[in-house]
C-alpha cells in the first residue's frame, strides 16, 4: 500500500512538473504547480509529517498559488513567443540536465546503500505539538526573526505595488 501510494503521487508530481516546464501559457503552469504541491503534501503524510502536510496545502497550494493566479489574471498575460534561443537551449540543455540528474542519483545511491524503507506510521514526531514545542524553545529566535521578515515583506509589497499619488 505504501509503495502504491508513493508511486501514484510521485508520478503525479513528476508529470505535473514536466507539464509546468512544457506549457507556454502561465495559467497552465500554475495549475500544474498546484498538482505538484498537492501530491507532495500526500508524500509528507507518508513520511509522518502531518503538520507540514497541512501547512503545505494551506500556505503553498492555498495562499501562494492564489497570489500567482491573481497576478496572472491581473496582468492578462498570454502564451509566450517562441524564440531562436529556445531551440538552441533544448539541444544543449537536456543532455546537461540528464547528466546532472545521473550524478545526483549516483551520489544518493552511494550515500544510502542499505537505508531502511519508509513505513507509514514508523515516525510520529511530526505532530503540531512536537513542532510547536521545538519552535517555541530551541528555534525561538529564528521564529521571531521570520515575523520581522514577514512584516518587512508586507511593507515592501505595499510600497512597490501602490499607485503613485502626486
Amino acid at each position: 500500500m505504501d509503495a502504491i501510494l508513493f508511486l501514484l503521487f510521485a508520478a503525479i508530481a513528476v508529470v505535473c512538473g514536466i507539464n509546468l516546464v512544457v506549457q507556454t501559457h502561465p495559467i497552465s503552469s500554475a495549475l500544474s504547480l498546484i498538482g505538484v504541491m498537492g501530491s507532495l503534501a500526500v508524500l509528507y503524510l507518508l513520511l509522518g509529517g502531518e503538520f507540514i502536510a497541512a501547512a503545505q496545502l494551506i500556505v503553498y497550494a492555498g495562499a501562494i498559488m492564489v497570489l500567482f493566479v491573481f497576478t496572472i489574471m491581473l496582468l492578462n498575460s498570454g502564451a509566450e513567443k517562441k524564440t531562436l534561443k529556445t531551440t538552441k537551449a533544448r539541444w544543449f540543455g537536456l543532455p546537461l540536465l540528464a547528466g546532472f540528474l545521473g550524478v545526483i542519483a549516483f551520489i544518493i545511491q552511494g550515500a544510502l546503500p542499505k537505508a531502511e524503507g519508509v513505513k507509514f506510521g514508523a515516525f510520529t514526531g511530526g505532530t503540531a505539538q512536537q513542532i510547536g514545542w521545538k519552535v517555541f524553545t530551541q528555534y525561538l529566535l529564528p521564529f521571531e526573526i521570520t515575523s520581522v521578515l514577514i512584516l518587512i515583506a508586507i511593507l515592501g509589497a505595499i510600497v512597490l505595488a501602490r499607485k503613485e499619488i502626486d
Binding site: D2, A3, F6, L43, Q109, A115, E116, G117, V118, K119
Partner: peptide, 8 residues
Amino acid sequence: TSVPLSWY
C-alpha cells in the same frame, strides 16, 4: 512493501 528512502 516499504519504499526505499532513496526514492524520495
